[in-house]
Design a protein around this nucleic acid. Structure first.
Lengths: 188, 188
DNA sequence: CCACAAAGCGGACTATAGTCCTTTTAGGCC
DNA sequence: GGCCTAAAAGGACTATAGTCCGCTTTGTGG
C-alpha cells in the first residue's frame, strides 16, 4: 500500500500563514503578548479573523506555532546533542541539565509559553512538546528512581515548570532560588 | 489608638450576597460549573451584573466565596485537629496526610477549585488559602529536609496539586496512581 | 420625621475569543 | 484557455467577562 501523501498546502494558505506569523511576531515584540488581541493580529496580517482561527485553532495554537522552531532545537539537543543534556551522561545529570535548559528556554519566552499553556483550559497537556518532555522525564526517572511509577511522576515533576507557576515563583523569590528549588525537587 | 472598626455591611448588601451565593450554588449543581455564565448567576439571583462583580471581584472570587467554608474546615484540621494531619505527628507523616486530605478536598470540588484558580491569570497564587498551604508545607519541609530552601520548594510541591494539573493527571492515570505519585514527590 | 451623604445597585457598554456561512480562489482536467 | 470542485478566505455574528456611571437605598444626625 502507498502512503497517501498529505495534500499539498495551497499557495494562498501558505502565503497567509507566513503573513500571520510575521505579523504576530512583530506585534508581540512591540506591545507584549498580553497586549495584542487576535483581531489585532488579523488586522496587522491583513487577513480575516476566520482565516486566523481556521489555521491556528485558537490563541494557544498561534503561540505554539511561534515557539515551534525554538522548541525543536531544544528537543534535538535532548535527543542527539552533547551530554549532559543529550544522551551519554548519567540519568540524574541529564535530569538536572533538562531542568536548567528548559528553564532557560522558558524564561526567554515566558509570556508566549504562558499563552500557549493557558489560552484554553487544559491546553498545556495537549501540546505535542509537553508530551515529549513528559516521555523524556519518565525515561530518566526509571533510572534515577528504579521501581517508581514514572508516568504520573513525570507529570508531577513537570507541573512546577508550567509558565504560570514559574512566573509566580521567580516573581516572589528571584530566578536563582526558583531554579535551585526546581532542581532540588527533580533530583531528590 | 483605637482599631477603627470595619464598617458594618449594609442590609441590602448582605441580602444580595446571600442571594448570589445561593443562586450560584444551585446553578453550579444543576448545570455544572463550566456551563454557567456570570450573567446567568446574576439573573438567577435577580441582581444586576454590577452588583455581582462589585461584591466578588471576578469569577474566581465567586468560586473562592463558595469554597470558603469547606476550606476553613480543612485549615482548622491542619492547625488544631488530630494527628497525623494536625500537630503532634512527625513532619513527614503530616506532609503525607496533608497531600491526602488536600486531594480528597480537591477531588470533591474539582471544577469549582479549577474556576477559582484559573478564572484570571495568576489567580491561584493570590488566593488566601494558597498562601496558607504554602506556609504550612514550608514549615513541614524545614523538618523533613533540613537546610533546604523551604519557601520556593513549598511552592514547587504545591504546583502539581493545582486543580488543572490534577484533572489531567487523574484523567490519564486514575486517582490511585495520581495520588501515589503526588505523595511520592512530597515525601522523597 | 426629614435631609443628606455615602454605600450600594443595575444594566447598558466595551473588549475579546471563537463560530458560521457565503463568496472567492487555486489548481487539476479537458 | 475555460470549467469545476474542494479548499480557503473573510467578516458579520454570538457568547461572555468585566467596566462605568447615573439612580436608589440605607441609616444617621438634627
Amino acid at each position: 500500500m502507498l502512503l497517501d501523501e498529505p495534500p499539498r498546502e495551497r499557495a494562498d494558505a501558505a502565503r497567509n500563514r507566513l503573513k500571520v506569523l510575521a505579523a504576530a511576531a512583530r506585534l508581540f515584540r512591540e506591545k507584549g503578548v498580553d497586549g495584542v488581541s487576535m483581531d489585532a493580529v488579523a488586522a496587522e496580517a491583513k487577513v480575516g479573523k476566520g482565516t486566523l482561527f481556521r489555521r491556528f485553532g485558537d490563541k494557544s495554537g498561534l503561540a505554539v506555532a511561534l515557539l515551534d522552531e525554538r522548541e525543536r532545537e531544544l528537543q534535538e539537543a535532548v535527543l542527539t546533542g552533547p551530554p549532559p543534556l543529550g544522551p551519554g551522561a548519567p540519568a540524574a545529570d541529564r535530569l538536572g541539565a533538562f531542568v536548567d535548559a528548559y528553564l532557560d528556554h522558558l524564561l526567554d519566552h515566558l509570556d508566549l509559553v504562558r499563552m500557549s499553556e493557558t489560552a484554553s483550559p487544559g491546553a498545556r497537556y495537549r501540546i505535542g512538546s509537553y508530551r515529549f518532555w513528559c516521555r523524556h522525564v519518565a525515561i530518566l526517572l526509571t533510572e534515577t528512581r528504579p521501581g517508581c511509577d514514572a508516568g504520573p511522576l513525570a507529570h508531577a515533576l513537570l507541573a512546577p515548570l508550567a509558565a504560570e507557576h514559574v512566573t509566580a515563583l521567580t516573581g516572589e523569590y528571584g530566578r536563582a532560588r526558583a531554579r535551585q528549588a526546581l532542581r532540588t525537587l527533580a533530583l531528590s
